[in-house]
Amino acid sequence: MSVNDNEPYVTADGRKIGGVLMEMKNITLRFGGVKAITDISFDIREGEIRAIIGPNGAGKSSMLNVISGFYIPQEGEVWYKGAPRPQMKPYEVAQQGIARTFQNIALFEGMTVLDNVMTGRLNHMKTGLLAQAIWKGKAQAEEVENREVAEKIIDFLEIQHIRKTPVARLPYGLKKRVELARALAAQPSLLLLDEPMAGMNVEEKEDMSRFILDVNDEFGTTIALIEHDMGVVMDLSDRVVVMDYGKKIGDGTPDEVRNNQNVIDAYLGVAHD
């Protein structure tokens, strides 16, 4: 069993990994004269936890923004579900089943946790604005349906006690969890996490890791995440892409990456030529 073949396989802990869900083909991204990403290719397979790591300024967040459709690369193609993806607006990307969280939390601070999570259901609501305002019949039934999904996620992430609390009053660690809840509410097929553990203490990191693993396990959600904390990444992910100065310097299982000389150099700071 090799992780790098394109055949579906079952991991040691019993999760099914399917075929390729998303493929980045020779992506190059420039901002004016600055090359943020240079000719990077890798794939994300159904059901796996895929990490993108690298030192500061390696281009990780840019990469995530390319995946999420926020940046449009000058060169290369993004293939999603077996077809090249045309240029699209962020909301169109969301409709395709991609959800994300942000490095600097981007919640609606004045709204309650529940309302924030409900916004994640937006793409699943079909009734019009007027019908929702009148809130009768179909609109009401739809609200109930979506609330059920939101409540399951609130239960899953154990945030029942803050359901009705305005987000602004929550501590940082909980806000991160609420953001994850909102992304999950969209029931995405691909979940992008931008530094889900930044600024957390050890206990919060442990909790968040647990939730990420459980999400992947229970819902079968494919997860792509960016993370600084090497220890966390190595424990969580099935495969890791390592970037440095906008280039891919390693790709493979955590063990392969850990023993990769380029990666060691990048992290220990050998002079670049």
Partner: peptide, 10 residues
């Protein structure tokens, strides 16, 4: 009613 438990907000 003999038992109630709040689950999923209800």
């Amino acid at each position: 009613a003999a038992y109630r438990e709040k689950e999923f907000g209800i």
